[in-house]
Nucleic acid binder design. Structure first.
Lengths: 255, 255
DNA sequence: GCGCACGAAAGTGCATGCAGTTTGCGTGCC
DNA sequence: GGCACGCAAACTGCATGCACTTTCGTGCGC
């Protein structure tokens, strides 16, 4: 599978292994946003030294799945609502590009592979949410992989994982049935070679996924305590954090 | 500005410093693609241990500026022509998004800042190519920064640096004057709030930059020997690398 | 009883050291 | 003279150890 450095990111294998494991744990919500990731614990768990665990955390931080603060324990990233929205916006553009490159150029084998994946999603529909979310995400990554463009693959994977993370944060029920159907329609359009239709389909699909998840900024569940308290803290002292509940206000201040 | 972890990527400062230094050295072509980056040398040069240098290399590898091969000296990345093309395609989409978010929403201060930057580009026009390339790249990053979306900023920066790297690989003369003018036009459209015009302008601008650079796959200067030799190696042994010069054939092997 | 300060425990930041791998050079053989 | 083998230098892969920072619990003063 190409050179391992591509997906695993770091050249080494041990680091790559840990990255993959953590990524998966994060997107399956085994590790919730905010969960602590001490270096020693990770090292011990994976049978490596802190050095390696540290390196892996660095990589994941670069991907935005982990937050690294100096002298503090690393934690699973807790994207803000606005970041989630931004991530989806970017994702839409990237995946439209994927679809544009793929429409009408998929081999029979590839189409079959996509179909099989959606079947797997279907099968997992009644299973735990985490798994079906992961499968849905992996469908998009599978699609990206078929472009064979390493850069595009990496970006789509990364942003998809991030979106996956925010999904686990904001959307609870996660209605997957429509998403699965949208996946099928998309495959059809891709196989048929209708570029415009496929791009539109992808756009709408992701938009509605985002929409279902990010409805009106839902309640910020386990979010940062400072954000949660922001509306209550009417004190002039100001919470010294992002204005939070003001979705678009931040785009202005000349900084 | 913002938390340092954003731009510097790694939480630490030392690592971030080295990353920034190397990034700059790379995009200014002080370090040409293929240049070796031994850990000890880096460590010694920056007054840190190999551990830190190694970490920095890991980050840069994640950004695609450095290639990390197991047990081998890290080298500055040497993107293939196809990768360059892919990078620009992605970049176009991302920057269109930037422009879409920015058009008509820039403060007077911001517009002035952009103008000042272009002035700087103008001033550097007769200087070394490396500097004007860097300034042109930084114009786009400055633009991205104004979206205040950390994710978008990161992605645009990354891809812009990568494109910058390929520019240094493929395009020698680098005619900057038209690019500068395009920057001015873009600012105008942004200030005027004409979203569509601005997006189109950005699209054309990047497309023509890519076009000027990647004309007909130029000669792959210092490229990977395996790729260069691929067309000559008609042996059935197959070079075990991507078929190279066949742009779209390379997509298939079920892996 | 409450708040504050001090100290231990936990954790990160980083350098160094050792083992394994690759590279390059010199020697011997053809 | 050229080629192959082998050894030594160079470099990476990784763990461990020490110093510093943060955190949290405890006891003292009020």
């Amino acid at each position: 599978m190409a050179r391992d450095a591509d997906q695993g990111r770091a050249g080494s294998d041990k680091v790559g292994t840990i990255c993959r494991a953590l990524r998966r744990a994060i997107i399956e919500q085994a590790l919730e946003p905010g969960a602590k990731l001490p270096e020693d614990a990770l090292g011990e768990r994976f049978g490596v030294s802190r050095t390696i665990a540290r390196h892996a955390l660095g990589q994941l931080a670069a991907e935005g799945l982990v937050e690294l603060r100096r002298n503090r324990i690393a934690v699973v990233a807790t994207p803000s609502w606005q970041e989630a929205r931004d991530a989806f916006d970017i994702r839409i553009e990237l995946e439209r590009l994927v679809v544009r490159q793929l429409a009408g150029r998929l081999s029979r084998t590839q189409i079959a592979a996509l179909g099989a994946h959606v079947d797997a999603e279907e099968a997992a529909r009644n299973g735990p949410d985490a798994v079906s979310i992961r499968l849905a995400t992996e469908f998009h990554i599978l699609l990206a992989t078929m472009t064979e463009s390493p850069i595009l693959i990496r970006y789509v994977s990364e942003i998809a994982y991030r979106c996956c993370l925010t999904l686990s944060l904001f959307s609870r029920p996660h209605s997957s049935e429509c998403a699965i159907n949208e996946h099928r329609l998309l495959i059809e359009a891709l196989a048929g070679g209708d570029v415009d239709a496929a791009m539109a389909l992808m756009h709408d699909h992701l938009d509605s996924v985002a929409g279902r998840a990010l409805v009106a900024q839902a309640k910020p569940r386990g979010r940062d305590i400072m954000d949660i308290l922001a509306p209550y803290a009417a004190t002039p002292a100001q919470t010294r954090r992002k204005p939070a509940t003001l979705p678009s206000a931040r785009r202005d201040a000349a900084e």
